[in-house]
């Protein structure tokens, strides 16, 4: 983003202080967003999310793999974020890579759940095929095509939507002969596929501190002025699934607890809205086919 003049900055901060940002939003308002499902037909599930001008593609590829060594009864969820250089000239080369890695980590923290898989975004136990040997691995990839702030929150919405669209082929373990391992037979008939429950998938609300206040869903210009940001993952039950602090400035601890409750409140509203948008996208998809 090109830099803003000192005058524009103070106008921006003044607006935030008065709860009237440059586009008329209050500090806690999200921009309007849209969701499109099944945009990459070769993926097991996919979605495109447009939040303001921020445009991301989330795709899920389900592949058979080996379960984690410490928890042989679970499957795996692997997350990655990639910011395309098309998102803006500042994302060519190293800058883009670093931010991609940082956001990927933040997503992982919010979606991976505890060490033993409890509280993860998806039911990892349900992904197991043969305990200790084979399981489904869901590779969730986010590609950021256009950046106008708040990539992380948009990515979380994208992954939730893509997961709701994901079909996992049915696997049958055929009886082996004697000591031999049974073979796996895959049935990818779309009617026989298993769906992934997204009830536990959290959403992320990033609160960006600009001056003395914090705002939700910052645009590119607002984000460029941030001193620090707190990304909070909230799930349907109102629980916090992950908290990530970004930015160099410190945040006073008393402010943090306030920010957490604000994030929860916004998160709840957002979850309802996202669920509604996903259903809408699903019915649109059905009417097209």
């Amino acid at each position: 983003m090109p830099g803003l003049s000192a005058a524009e900055l103070s106008f921006l901060e003044g607006g935030i202080a008065q709860d009237l940002r440059n586009d008329g939003r209050g500090r806690e308002d999200f921009r309007s967003f849209s969701i499109q499902l099944d945009v990459i037909s070769q993926a097991s599930g996919s979605a495109r999310v447009r939040l303001g001008a921020t445009d991301i593609l989330a795709s899920i590829k389900a592949e058979l793999g080996s379960p984690p060594a410490e928890f042989p009864h679970l499957g795996r969820l692997e997350l990655a974020v990639e910011i395309s250089p098309t998102a803006g000239p500042e994302f060519e080369g190293r800058g883009g890579e670093e931010l991609s890695a940082e956001l990927g980590k933040a997503l992982e923290r919010s979606f991976a759940g505890g060490a033993n898989g409890t509280g993860a975004a998806v039911d990892l136990a349900a992904l197991s095929v043969v305990e200790g040997k084979t399981c489904w691995v869901l590779y969730a990839d986010v590609l950021v095509l256009n950046a106008d702030g708040n990539i992380l929150d948009a990515s979380a919405i994208g992954i939730k939507a893509a997961l709701s669209n994901t079909r996992i082929p049915k696997v049958e373990v055929l009886a082996g002969e004697g000591d031999e391992e049974g073979e796996l037979e895959l049935n990818d008939d779309p009617d026989e596929c298993a769906r992934v429950s997204t009830a536990a998938v959290p959403l992320i609300v990033t609160l960006t501190k600009v001056g003395r206040h914090y705002i939700a869903d910052a645009t590119g210009d607002e984000e460029a002025q941030m001193s620090s940001a707190l990304s909070v993952a909230v799930n349907e039950k109102g629980q916090l699934c992950g908290v990530t602090k970004r930015g160099s400035a410190g945040i006073d601890p008393s402010v943090i607890s306030d920010m957490l409750s604000v994030a929860r409140r916004i998160g709840k509203r957002l979850l309802a809205k996202v669920d509604a948008e996903i259903s809408l996208a699903e019915s649109r998809l059905e009417s097209e086919t």
């Binding site: 000192a6 005058a7 103070s10 106008f11 901060e13 003044g14 607006g15 008065q18 009237l20």
Partner: peptide, 11 residues
């Protein structure tokens, strides 16, 4: 003065 804008004007 920069930044200080009356709320009504801002709206």
């Amino acid at each position: 003065p920069s930044g200080q804008v009356d709320l009504q004007l801002r709206e």
